[in-house]
């Protein structure tokens, strides 16, 4: 069996200097200040000041609705994202490797790439009913083509000389895939995940608004109908906060890990 040697250089961690932290904090406070000043000019009706939105967040949090809706939305994002990434990576790899698959798949890819998200969502709801399956499938279908395109590019860029090396040394298929192919695809998969995640964040709310009885998108739809702007912003900002946390805690460390062997930019 192939045993992983224990003497590995540690992965480059994503340590930030205090200076960067300070700039981030500064940029955040500037945003808050601008918001507050704009609220003073526009009037609390159209743009409630930060404390009013904070109060709405606290209220929604206390009732438990905030966490329930955020949780439901996150679950949909996770399912649709996983589905689209898995399928997209597999299809992209096949299309990059096999010419026939590329020929057959390409027109469909162009169709899906240019099909408006709204059309997919509405059709999914019409054909599959206002169900969870329809919502998740619609979100996944929207994300799928970009993942396919990115991974296909990555597969086309695979280094054939390393393939030859793996063949000469008779590496078993799985080991070659894991250690020769996958590390080359990793930056492309990471890029697809990154752009795909932001796409899913955007589309999931539309799908919820149109045909789900809960989730952040549904709540924003209700707030829109009631013209309840503090509630609208409360959900929007909480959602953005969750996205930011996931990006920093999950996505960025993953990217740092897969590219740890590259000499880093200064």
């Amino acid at each position: 069996m192939w045993a992983r040697p224990k003497t590995l250089t540690p992965a480059h961690s994503i340590v930030r200097s205090p200076k960067t932290e300070m700039f981030r904090f500064l940029s955040f406070t500037t945003f808050l200040a601008t918001w507050w000043i704009a609220a003073l000019f526009a009037g609390g009706e159209k743009l409630p000041p930060p404390p009013a939105v904070l109060a709405a967040i606290v209220e929604a949090a206390n009732s438990g609705a905030l966490f329930l809706n955020l949780g439901v939305t996150l679950a949909r994002v996770a399912l649709a994202f996983t589905l689209a990434m898995t399928l997209g990576t597999a299809i992209g790899y096949l299309m990059g490797r096999i010419r026939l698959a590329d020929r057959v798949g390409d027109p469909w890819l162009i169709l899906l790439l240019n099909l408006p998200a709204l059309v997919v969502i509405v059709l999914a709801y019409i054909w599959a009913g206002l169900t969870e399956v329809a919502a998740i499938a619609a979100i996944a279908i929207n994300k799928l083509p970009t993942a396919v395109v990115t991974v296909r590019e990555g597969t086309r860029a695979l280094d054939t000389t390393l393939d030859e090396m793996a063949r000469v040394f008779a590496m078993p298929r799985w080991r070659a895939f894991r250690h020769v192919i996958l590390p080359q695809l990793a930056p492309y998969i990471a890029a697809a995940a990154r752009s795909g995640l932001s796409l899913v964040w955007k589309i999931v709310l539309v799908a919820e608004l149109l045909g789900r009885p809960n989730g952040v998108g549904f709540e924003i739809g209700v707030a829109f109908q009631l013209f309840d702007i503090p509630r609208l912003l409360a959900y929007a900002l909480s959602f953005v906060a969750v996205v930011l946390i996931i990006e920093t805690v999950l996505v960025q460390p993953f990217e740092a890990r897969v590219s740890r062997w590259r000499p880093r930019a200064a």
């Binding site: 192939w2 040697p5 250089t9 000389t161 030859e164 090396m165 008779a170 250690h179």
Partner: peptide, 27 residues
């Protein structure tokens, strides 16, 4: 016969350490 080959360029896996490169070819 197992084949061992040295190509004109080293053809190492840049994302694996020296020892891993050797062990992957010779488990």
């Amino acid at each position: 016969a197992r084949i061992g080959m040295v190509f004109q360029e080293p053809r190492l896996l840049p994302w694996r350490s020296v020892e891993e490169n050797v062990r992957l070819a010779a488990p």
